[in-house]
Nucleic acid binder design. Structure first.
Length: 297
DNA sequence: AAGGTTGGCAACCGCTGTAGG
DNA sequence: CCCTACAGCGGTTGCCAACCT
């Protein structure tokens, strides 16, 4: 039916796995461990291709697979991660213990994606609640942030020399000796020199866009326990009594788009510590937004 | 009751990145 | 540097049960 065989070899089983095949595969992996998928079928005595064995193990037979429906918390987490990561199902699954990329992908396609589509249709016919205007994840094939575009609500504050046509300023972002990403050269932008001006709050400035190369995002997210964050209430990401995590608390209240509501780097309280700390992901709630109230209704 | 339709999910395909020779 | 094998990933397909007419 249109689908060509996974492995061109004749005599290999295809389609649904039998209980016997499952047992053979499970027993083999228990003894020999995962990996070497190509040789596994022959060694285990299975008439399957290696790819098929790997998939069956990872998506179904693995002992740590969580069964049952996706919970509300998990769903919210999936939405937020998808907003951040796009269709990087394996990355999303990595933050949901016991869930597989395939499961999340299927869930998205059959539930969440449809809800979003329905909501979009509803918005077109009778707009009620605000929906993110740029409902697109940020670029995900990225690994090192090299440039950031910052917007200010007060364009006139920005020197023409640096932003001749718009309210935007592009600055360089470089890793320091501790591998923290630092926005460079802000002091040279008169409009952003906040050293003697403490009247600004963190909602005044926004990172609008990022220019990144590979791995930046992965490094960025490394070590964040999203399941824990989910369990402790999404709205408090980065603000759970952590004195160093106050940057974004005031950035989530306006109605600007999610990108424009990105991490406010120029918080006057922290201008002397312009670093993205490894453990400080307080900007996440700004990036991912609190605009999903409409979804939960 | 029978046939058609839909939705959910498991499995497959093809592409890509990476390591090793 | 090139080639090959392998593993992993995301998109797509097919099966089947539930639902509808």
């Amino acid at each position: 039916m249109g689908r060509s065989p996974c492995c061109a070899k004749e005599g290999l089983n295809r389609g649904a796995w039998t209980a016997t095949e499952d047992k053979i595969l499970t027993d083999y992996i228990k003894i020999n461990g995962e990996g070497k998928w190509r040789n596994l079928p022959k060694r285990a005595g299975l008439k399957r291709c290696g790819k098929s064995c790997r998939l069956r193990w990872l998506n179904y037979l693995r002992p740590d697979i969580k069964r049952g429906n996706i919970s509300h918390d998990e769903e919210e987490l999936i939405i937020r991660l998808h907003k951040l990561l796009g269709n990087r199902w394996s990355l999303i699954a990595g933050r949901l213990p016991g869930r597989t990329d395939n499961e999340i992908k299927n869930y998205w396609n059959t539930n969440i994606g449809k809800k979003l589509q329905d909501h979009h249709q509803q918005q077109i016919s009778s707009p009620k609640k605000p929906m993110p205007t740029d409902f697109q994840p940020i670029r995900t094939k990225a690994s090192k942030c090299t440039k950031a575009i910052i917007t200010t609500p007060e364009p006139q504050r920005c020197s023409q020399q640096y932003c001749p046509d718009t309210e935007q300023v592009t600055v360089a972002v470089e890793p320091d000796h501790d591998h923290h990403y630092v926005i460079k050269g802000l002091d040279s932008f008169p409009g952003f020199n906040l050293g003697d001006d403490h009247n600004h709050n963190s909602s005044d400035y926004f990172l609008k866009d990022f220019e990144m190369d590979e791995n930046f995002l992965s490094e960025f997210l490394y070590g964040v326990d999203f399941s824990e964050l989910a369990a402790n209430n999404f709205d408090t990401i980065g603000n759970r009594g952590d004195n160093n995590s106050t940057r974004s608390s005031s950035t989530t209240t306006n109605n600007t788009s999610c990108c424009e509501r990105g991490y406010s780097y120029l918080d006057s309280d922290h201008h002397q510590d312009d670093k993205l700390q490894d453990s400080d992901f307080s900007f996440m709630d700004s990036i991912m937004g609190s605009e999903f109230g409409w979804f939960c209704d």
